[in-house]
């Protein structure tokens, strides 16, 4: 009789190379956002940004089983989703810097980074905007006879938008291959879940749409990966949508205007002790996937990628002013 495998889900499910790559991308998400923040402070980029530092496990663990044919829709807090889906940080920085080499040729900025060719249907500046679009992408997959799934990321704020409810209902009625992933970081801008949401767990809303709903520790890579694994398998099998709620926390403010008047320093510091990257790294080391030196090397590689990305962006050309109305319509 074989012993039950008690190792965490990710360790027993994914190959060491995949796990190392996942850690690398989580470091890359954090370094990218720190690099973006630093560039903003130094006046190299303008506008605003919504940082997901502290939420990296949710993004990365949700994308472990996706191919370029699978789709994601993302949010205004979407840098992590892009990197997890395979985006190059150089082109992301270039977009941030408003350069022609950016994913959107400088027209979209932080809130619209997308790469349709690799299944990233884009971040979105409208809370809840991506939910019906994700259902539409899943409808395409079903109608075109493909086995692609769509992962729909959204925040806790979106769960009170009508679009959320309409999208979940239609996905369920039509049994579409979509996985709704709510990254519940506790606050819609400044308004807490307790003050905005009538259910204790957003996953409880799944009951209303006859789909499985599960709430997991969004800072635990394996917990997220396992929940999403089952949801993706269900979607690929044609059994319909699922709702996964990842409980997490953003270390930074909502955007650059945030003075953190709605939460305490103690609360933020308490969450920082649950750093999803540190936890995943420790888990990989504990199970022999990595040692400290190779983990350090992965982190260093992420920093190098980030720095190279910023240099690429800085050196890239700006769009031509005469092209201001280009891309409004298709070009002949």
């Amino acid at each position: 009789m074989t012993q039950p495998d008690n190792r965490p889900f990710a360790i027993r499910t994914y190959a060491p190379d995949q796990l190392r790559e996942a850690l690398k991308r989580m470091y890359l998400i954090r370094r990218f956002e720190e690099g973006a923040e630093d560039s903003y402070m130094r006046g190299l980029i303008h506008g605003t940004m919504h940082l997901s530092i502290g939420q990296e496990a949710s993004a990365m663990a949700s994308c472990m089983e996706l191919t370029d044919d699978d789709k994601i829709t993302s949010t205004h807090r979407g840098h992590g989703h892009c990197i997890a889906k395979g985006a190059e940080v150089g082109r992301m920085f270039a977009e941030f810097f408003g350069k022609e080499t950016g994913y959107c040729h400088g027209r979209g900025g932080s809130m619209h980074i997308a790469d349709v060719k690799t299944g990233n249907l884009g971040a979105n500046g409208i809370v809840g905007g991506g939910l019906p679009i994700a259902v539409g992408a899943a409808l395409s997959a079903k109608r075109l006879g493909k086995s692609d799934v769509t992962i729909c990321f959204f925040g806790d704020g979106a769960n009170n938008e009508g679009a959320f409810h309409e999208a979940l209902n239609m996905a369920s009625v039509w049994k579409l291959p979509v996985v709704f992933i709510c990254e519940n970081n506790g606050y819609g801008m400044s308004t807490s879940i307790a003050r905005s949401t009538s259910v204790k767990h957003i996953a409880d809303r799944a009951v209303a749409y006859s789909m499985p709903g599960v709430t997991v520790d969004g800072n635990d890579f394996s917990a997220v990966a396992e929940a999403v694994h089952h949801a993706v398998a269900r979607a690929r099998a044609g059994e319909g949508p699922s709702l996964v709620e990842n409980l997490t926390y953003r270390w930074r403010g909502h955007s650059k205007s945030d003075r953190n008047r709605y939460r305490t320093k103690e609360e933020i510091e308490e969450w920082m002790t649950r750093d999803p990257i540190a936890r995943f790294r420790a888990e990989l080391i504990a199970h022999g996937v990595l040692d400290e030196a190779s983990a350090d090397a992965i982190e260093a590689a992420a920093i190098a990628d980030m720095e190279a990305g910023i240099e690429f962006a800085k050196a890239s050309p700006a769009p031509s002013i005469s092209d201001v109305t280009r891309y409004v319509y298709a070009e002949n």
Partner: peptide, 13 residues
């Protein structure tokens, strides 16, 4: 809203 959005997402894909 949802229906139009599903159409948009389907058109995108």
């Amino acid at each position: 809203l949802g229906g139009a959005g599903v159409a948009v997402g389907a058109a995108l894909t």
